[in-house]
Design a protein around this nucleic acid. Sequence first.
RNA 1: GUGAUUGUAGCUCAGCUGGUUAGAGCGCUGGUUUGUGGCACCAGAGGUCGCCGGUUCGAACCCGGUCUUUCACCCCA
Length: 456
Amino acid sequence: MSISKPSIPKGTRDFGPTEMARRNYILETIKDTFRLFGFQQLETPAMENLTTLTGKYGDEGDQLLFKILNSGDFLKQVTVEDFAQGASAMLPKVSEKGLRYDLTVPFARFVVMNRNELVFPFKRFQIQPVWRADRPQRGRYREFYQCDADVVGTDSLVCEAEILLMIKRVFTAFGLTDYTIKVNNRKILTGLAEVIGVPGKEQELCVAIDKLDKIGWEKVKEELLNRGFSGEAAEKLAPMVARQPDGNAATVVFFSELMAGSEIGTKGVSELVEVFELLNTLGGDDSFIQFDPMLARGLSYYTGAIFEVKVNNVQIGSVSGGGRYDNLTGVFGLPDVSGVGFSFGVDRIYDVLNELDLFQDLSQSPVRLMIAHFGEEEMRYGLRILSKLRNAGISSEIYPEQAKIKKQFAYADRKHIPYAIIVGSEEMKSGKITFKNLKTGNQETLDFDQVLARLA
RNA sequence: GUGAUUGUAGCUCAGCUGGUUAGAGCGCUGGUUUGUGGCACCAGAGGUCGCCGGUUCGAACCCGGUCUUUCACCCCA
């Protein structure tokens, strides 16, 4: 008798009709843009072999993977010795599949498996849920959607410029007017490490720099010193950190001088300049785009351009980001595949649009008309009208049971259905249709064709 | 994974230092009005106070555990 209350797992969500309408609006807008730029859609399975997934995201990432217990007697391979050694020794024997953690690794796996059939440069987009056994917080879930687009098999900077254009197109479509696309280049960060006298340590440099927004320069400096950087190196960094954004052209000049002693840093700056030029030729400009030499993200695999998009004046982290990588498929035995990709954070975009109240009347029911009736016989008469309406392409429904007219109207009201037809004995006798506008309360007696004209 | 935090009606929340039958607003159902929704008025339904255990004559309130929520760290979308 004690039936427990239903619930859903931690960090997961249901999407009701209103949320689905809004999510679909977001996804359709994004897909539309991807297709316009020549990307093709790909889907991969929710589960991958654990060997495909492990080792790709670092030790912490491996811990965040959801593993799937083997079917049947999942303990049959486990020995007492395995058990004594603990979870990590047992894992490969009880689980050989896991849920995908992102879309990039499955994509790399797909490219390698299909390298002979694919047309390169291969431009694909992929919108699917991914799973992480993280501890949920606001805007962080255990099941969430990623929405990736990548171009692999070319190192043309045209791709970078196009990505910037796609981001701008999508955000414009959403009605967002106050956002910033931050761009940088990994090579500039590498050059930076050389220039301040810590060549090869850009990884550590970036991890610290990345926190600049959050914890401020003093704390970052502290962390750098803790990581074994000299005070001299930190001092050299200070003027760059203190620099206020003063336009991309000025930042470029500043950094090309700074990078003069670093070959790779100079290359990074010139790549960035070329992206700006290509963007211009493609009909875009650098409004909304900010060259931020301190931007660092996903360092483990980005090798060229880096992007990150933030919507200003909302309490939500980055809503989109990406970059170029030189070796996507190397771990699967296919070296030298360069690519560039980026991703929209659908859940966060949802929250942003919600917070800024930028969803248009998506709450509106797609149903345009409901037939109300006064009894069994009237309902059957109404069914014939309903069929004619649907044949004419009008999204419509009939109140399917006997109820007070008041209740029928209340139903239409709650579903925001704008029009109603009322069927009673009078209408059946005259053959005319009583057509009511539920917003204005205005009611008229019409022929069927006139009804269609009203709904046109 | 570490440290905090939250949970009372469908929703948002009251509920005093432990003390009878746990409240409000909104929503819901019905009626005023057996062919006309939104407004108004009237009536009604709905809660094992997250769950399990403990302390007590007595627990929504105190204690322990567990799940959930939110937050910081870690990491990230």
